[in-house]
Amino acid sequence: MRSIDKGPEPAELSAWKARNAATPRHLRYDGIGFPREAVRRALLLEQRHLCAYTMQALLTAKQCERRGWHTGFACHIEHFLPQARQIAAESIDYRNMLACHPPSMPGVYCGYGAQHKAAYDPAGQAFVSPLSADAASHFAFHGDGRVLGLSEAGRNSVRVLNLNHPALVHARQAAISHALCPRANVSLSPQAARKLAAAVLHAEGRERLPAYCVAIAQAALKYAEREERREARRAAAPR
């Protein structure tokens, strides 16, 4: 999980709220004319096309178009405080909305992330919000793709979101391996690994971040430290 810098709600959402201010019963997520696509686009941009919970890559509008899909298939809109709470104001609060895997396609189930969280209510619970500034610090990612919670909130989030689902573990491991060994039998130097750890998290001016970027950054730092210790031992060894 990475921290999301939440921006202002899209203008289309503000306008929809204003138009329906006189009829509060319409001010619901399933209300008539709710600007779902505008909200989805805004979420994707501020999340750099990464799932808020799993950091999987989410499709862009162009990628959807190439597949012959409408843009709604890029992701589904998740409510951090679930709609099961039946609080209408929360359902249309932009700060309560996140873009998540899987796409909003009928019959699709993945067994982790937002779908596994389902109607779980994190209010008052030890649970990591992607909107918290220290979201990544609650998790330790390993080179083999596993993730461990470093706090009660982190451990609870790993369990509720099923973040060690085999599909996620395999995908994270593959992303880490490719990042640290971009060419066959050619691994990064410690210096290059440290540069990678910083660059992979740098979002300024980038529409997309690499999938599992926090996992890659943590693994790259561990790799650099390990290789630096190895180099130090070699240098200290008698010749």
Rank of each mutant, 00 (worst) to 15 (best):
E9V: 06
S14E: 15
W16R: 08
W16P: 04
K17I: 13
A22F: 01
R25F: 07
H26R: 12
L27K: 08
L27R: 10
L27Y: 04
R28W: 03
D30V: 00
I32N: 14
I32W: 10
R36N: 04
E37Y: 08
E37D: 11
E37N: 13
A38H: 13
A42S: 15
L43Q: 09
L43H: 08
L44F: 03
L45C: 13
Q47Y: 13
R48L: 02
H49P: 03
L50S: 05
C51W: 10
A52N: 06
T54Q: 03
A57T: 06
A57K: 07
L58E: 01
L58T: 01
L58R: 06
L59Y: 08
K62F: 13
E65T: 05
R67L: 08
G68Y: 11
W69P: 03
W69S: 05
G72W: 02
A74E: 07
H76A: 02
H79N: 09
L81V: 10
Q86V: 07
I87S: 13
A89N: 08
S91A: 12
Y94H: 15
R95K: 15
R95I: 06
L98S: 01
G107V: 00
Y109T: 14
G111Q: 06
A114I: 11
A114Q: 07
H116G: 00
A119R: 13
D121Y: 14
P122E: 11
Q125V: 12
A126Q: 14
A126T: 11
A126R: 10
F127Y: 15
S129W: 14
P130Q: 09
P130R: 03
L131A: 05
D134L: 07
A136F: 02
A136L: 06
A136D: 13
F139I: 00
F141L: 00
F141P: 00
H142P: 01
V147S: 00
V147E: 00
E152T: 11
G154A: 01
N156R: 11
S157A: 11
R159Y: 09
N162G: 12
N164V: 05
N164P: 01
P166V: 04
A167L: 09
L168D: 00
A171R: 09
A174S: 12
A175S: 12
A175I: 03
H178G: 01
H178E: 09
A179G: 00
C181F: 11
P182G: 08
R183N: 04
R183I: 03
A184Q: 12
N185F: 12
V186K: 14
S187L: 10
L188N: 08
P190S: 04
Q191C: 09
A192P: 02
A193C: 08
R194A: 14
K195S: 10
A199V: 09
A199E: 15
L201M: 14
H202D: 14
R206I: 00
E207W: 07
R208H: 11
C213S: 10
C213P: 01
I216H: 06
A217R: 02
A217G: 13
A219S: 15
A220Y: 02
A220V: 07
A220H: 05
K222E: 15
Y223N: 07
A224Q: 10
E225Q: 15
E225C: 05
E228N: 04
R229G: 14
A232F: 01
R234K: 12
A237K: 11
P238Y: 04
